[in-house]
């Protein structure tokens, strides 16, 4: 805790308007259209679920976070929003709150707070919810008659099961994988989000726009989403052409949480590799895992696990792709020298 001591470094100093806080809040702004769309599609339920998960994150950060990492830097806000966007609209609020608190406490604060975490806290929260409440998190209520009607059982009492008697609907991925008469959802539905799904995974176009905005501002490393999407497209295209999988490549790209994951989750600055070469490896790994899990896995969707698994590999990727010091000999030469003595 010697942070208060003054550090003196030699000039010249580059002044930049960039700061953690600025970047974080611009991510929050870029999510605004997606949030708005989710409210448009799912009604007040979306507002409640998002509020609950954000509250879970903010309160945990406030209670257990160190003093310096205040709420103002917006990182807790992003975690809450992203987690909320991965949840189904009819999700009980107490579970959403719990997921936020868990993701924050065990995904981030336990490692030492912002910048120290290995895993994406929002996804860790979701992974916990997926493992703890597998039924609730895969229940997608059909669209209610009125926009104002709450979906599913948002207001289930804490610790109590949600009562879902309304008709449920399969997501495009679940339908194609497990449905009795699998239908490939038309691309326009996937693009504009008129399908069943989590709050933020339905409208691919808005996610793409938000991602492009961030990439343009330089707040996300475009190598990651590009490598993920290219890998998914190429691999699923290959398997589709050979006839192993029933998922057309474009359907793969725009269904499920791939867009949200590729642009907002995988690109988390803390949990992605440092070098561009590493980012390509990282993205290719995620893309390949997504395709493998979706085609052969026991679950319809695999973006979450793909990203978490690759998060765990980031330290190794960083080590393997460490750039050479300027002027130093290529690695092979350096190793030879070492072996051969001084």
């Amino acid at each position: 805790m010697n942070d208060s001591s003054i550090r003196v470094t030699a000039s010249p100093h580059v002044r930049s308007a960039e700061s953690t806080t600025r970047i974080m809040w611009s991510v929050v702004y870029s999510l605004a259209p997606v949030v708005a769309a989710s409210i448009w599609f799912f009604g007040p339920s979306a507002v409640l679920v998002l509020l609950a998960s954000v509250a879970g994150c903010l309160i945990t950060e406030r209670l257990f976070g160190s003093v310096r990492s205040s709420l103002a830097d917006g990182s807790a806000m992003i975690t809450g929003l992203l987690l909320g966007l991965t949840l189904p609209p009819g999700f009980p609020l107490w579970m959403a709150f719990l997921g936020g608190a868990f993701g924050m406490a065990f995904g981030k604060l336990i490692f030492g707070g912002l910048g120290q975490n290995v895993f994406n806290p929002a996804l860790l929260g979701r992974a916990f919810l997926q493992a703890a409440f597998p039924v609730a998190i895969t229940t997608w209520p059909s669209k209610p008659e009125s926009w104002w009607t709450l979906q599913g059982d948002n207001l289930a009492l804490p610790l109590m099961s949600p009562v879902v008697d309304a008709a449920t609907e399969a997501t495009p991925l679940g339908n194609l994988k497990f449905g009795d008469n699998p239908v490939i959802t038309p691309l326009t539905d996937l693009l504009f989000g008129t399908t069943a799904g989590s709050l933020g995974e339905t409208s691919a176009v808005l996610l793409l726009l938000g991602g492009l905005y961030l990439a343009f501002r330089g707040h996300l490393n475009w190598h990651i989403p590009v490598s993920i999407l290219v890998t998914v497209y190429a691999l699923s295209g290959l398997f589709y052409v050979i006839g192993i999988s029933q998922f057309p490549p474009l359907f793969m790209l725009f269904s499920g949480g791939l867009m949200l994951g590729a642009f907002y989750m995988a690109t988390d600055m803390v949990t992605s590799p440092v070098t561009n070469k590493g980012c390509w490896l990282f993205g290719i790994g995620i893309g390949a895992l997504v395709v493998v899990i979706r085609i052969w896995g026991g679950l319809p969707e695999g973006v979450m696990y793909a990203i978490l698994l690759m998060n765990a590999l980031v330290p190794f990727i960083n080590r393997a792709t460490q750039p050479r010091k300027f002027g130093s000999p290529p690695r092979r030469v350096a190793e030879k020298k070492k072996e051969g003595g001084p």
Partner: peptide
């Protein structure tokens, strides 16, 4: 908790063992 309790399935699974041990040691 009465009949309407929503079980946290993860704690019955092996992963829950690791989590719980972690909580206790923490």
């Amino acid at each position: 908790f009465g009949s309407n309790f929503e079980p946290w399935v993860v704690f019955v699974l092996p992963a829950g063992g690791f989590l719980t041990l972690g909580f206790i040691i923490l």
